[in-house]
Structures are given as C-alpha cells and as structure tokens.
C-alpha cells in the first residue's frame, strides 16, 4: 500500500477516536464524563510507561510510585492553598521528576530482571513512606475538598475538568510523538534495539536512559496530580504495586511501542472493570486470566489489531526489552519469523 494512503487512513482513525472522546461522554451523561476522565488520566500514566517499555526497552514495575508521588504532591498543594493549576501542576511535575531522577539514577545501574525488581522495590518504599505520613491520613489518605482552578476558570464542573484533561492528554501525546521522532528519540530507540552499538558510536546509554526515565516520571506525575484533582482524594493505594502492574497491563493490552495504544489499553481496562463489576465484585477473577490469555494467545494489542484490520499503518512489534540474562530465541523459535 502507498505510504501516504496509510498515513491518511491512520489520520482518519485518530480523528475518529478524538471525535468519540470529545462528543460521546457528555452525550452519555455525567457518570461517563467522569469515566472518560479516568481513562484519560490512566492513559497518560500508561503512556509514560510505554515511553520506557516500548521505546527504550525498559520494563518498569514501579511507575505507580511516581504516579503516586504526583498524586500526593498535587493533593497536598491544594490542601496547602496552592489552588492555581498553572503553579500547582508544574510544581507537582517537577517534584515527581526529582523523585524519578533519584530512583532512575540508582535503578538504571541494573538491567533486565534486576531493573524490574528494583523499580518495584522503590515504588514499594514510597508506598510505606506514604502510609506513615500520619499528618496526611496515613493509611486512610486525605481529601483535597476541591480542585485546582485555571485562574479564571473553575474546574469543579466535571465536564470542564474532562476537557482540560483531554487537552493535556492530546498535548502529551503530541509532545511524545515529537520526542520519539527527534534525534533524542532515535538514540532512545537505538538503545532499545542495540545498546552496545549506540554506546560505540558515542552516545552514553546511561545518560539517555536517565533522561527518558525522568521525562516519563514527569508525565506520570502530571497524571497523578490530575488524579488527585479528579477524585479530590489521595490515599496510598495510588502507589501500590497492583496499580503498577495494572498500568503495565494497560500498555500491553493496548499495544506497546505506540503512543495511542496505551490510551486505548487504559480505556479497555477501565471499561472491562466497569462492566464486570456490575455483575460481580470479583472482577479480578476474570481479569487475571484475561491477562494470561492475552500474553499466551495474542501477538498484538488492541491498537495493533485495529491498525492491521484497517491497514492504517505498521503494527507495533512486541518491544525488544533490555534483558541480558535471557538468550535470544533461535531462528525457528522466533515468533512470526516470516519472509
């Protein structure tokens, strides 16, 4: 197929998705506006994981730690009286990036299996730290009572807040799109594909990985701050390892290595939870096996399948991850090794 036709199809697909995101929730009612807000926020968090997973080949199991730092920072700032979003949100992002810098500097010294464990452990450490914040409700968390405002514009209306979150999400996706196609993005993807070669041509991989880790942390921090605004409530559950796993699951369900996939994965995850919890409180009983089935039976995520079905672009491959301990699959084992 001609490349510009592919691009045009993908453009239409994206436009369609955006139109659905803008028009559908208000038409369905307030409940769905709040639901869509949640999708946008988790989608942003999933996107931050995908920058690391799909584009840099780093499996992080601790992104909820940074999401939670953003949520706590965002929530605390509101309670402390910093109500202007133009001040509070950048501040929350900055704080999260500082945490990401410290965690990344240490955990990026390791690779593969150890990296997964170490990111998980640091997130858990933040979890215990949040639990012990007695002045901030400890295990029970705290309520923020209100949302930030944009100076002239109050965000207390669910619809207004939704559109602000949606604009931010689109902005983040666009910035990430620019980022992964920049020279920096080429180095990052080069590290994913062959770190040794990238080092050999003079780009220090550690520094580049640390920068993308901090950027991803900032995005997760923004998502966290938005979550504190959305729920008007923050508790240590925003830092739990289950949430880290769920965010990772959203990325994989949606397709890693694409910028839209994680958002679609978040939508699928939340819709799945929403529909099933109408019938049973034990929806995890079904989600766990679904995750196992996705991994064992399917090759593509939802976005990948969508692209394949509509012929609207290259299907993102399973990301090649940084894993020195595991021998590369031999030719006949390699999945999908075709002509």
């Amino acid at each position: 197929m001609r490349p510009n036709l592919v691009l045009r199809r993908r453009g239409w697909l994206l436009l369609l998705l955006l139109a659905v995101a803008i028009l559908l929730p208000p038409w369905l009612g307030t409940y769905y506006v709040r639901f869509a807000t949640q999708i946008a926020i988790y989608g942003m968090a999933a996107l931050s994981v995908d920058l690391l997973l799909g584009y840099t080949g780093l499996i992080t199991f601790g992104q909820a730690g940074l999401f939670g730092v953003g949520a706590y920072a965002g929530g605390m700032l509101i309670v402390l009286g910093v109500t202007n979003a133009f001040v509070a949100w950048p501040l929350a992002i900055l704080i999260t990036m500082l945490f990401a810098l410290a965690i990344g500097a240490l955990s990026l010294r390791t690779r593969g299996f150890q990296f997964i464990m170490v990111t998980l452990a640091f997130a858990q450490m933040l979890y215990y730290f949040a639990q012990s914040l007695r002045n901030w409700g400890g295990d029970d968390g705290f309520s923020t009572q209100r949302r930030n405002d944009l100076g002239f514009l109050s965000l207390e209306s669910h619809a207004t807040f939704y559109y602000v979150v949606l604009v931010l999400l689109v902005l983040v996706v666009w910035l990430c799109h620019r980022l992964v196609r920049s020279e920096f993005g080429m180095v990052i993807r080069g590290i994913r594909d062959n770190e040794r070669r990238v080092a050999a041509i003079g780009f220090p991989p550690y520094r580049y990985k640390l920068v993308i880790f901090v950027i991803a942390g900032g995005i997760a921090g923004l998502a966290g701050a938005l979550m504190a605004n959305h729920a008007k409530f923050v508790n240590p559950a925003v830092l739990s390892w289950q949430l880290s796993g769920e965010i990772l699951a959203m990325v994989i369900l949606g397709s890693a290595g694409s910028l839209i996939g994680p958002v679609i994965g978040a939508a699928f995850f939340l819709a799945f939870r929403d529909v099933l919890s109408d019938y049973t409180e034990h929806w995890m009983l079904f989600f766990g096996p679904l995750l196992v089935a996705r991994v064992l039976l399917l090759r593509d995520g939802i976005w990948g399948m969508l692209l394949r079905a509509t012929g609207a672009g290259e299907v993102p491959k399973e990301p090649k991850v940084d894993f020195p301990e595991v021998p590369k699959p031999t030719a006949e084992e390699k999945p999908g090794a075709g002509p």
Partner: peptide, 8 residues
C-alpha cells in the same frame, strides 16, 4: 520474553 512472563 520477560515482559510476557511478568504480566502472565
């Protein structure tokens, strides 16, 4: 791969 193992 490790990613699939972790998720499953």
């Amino acid at each position: 791969g490790p990613l699939e193992q972790v998720l499953a």
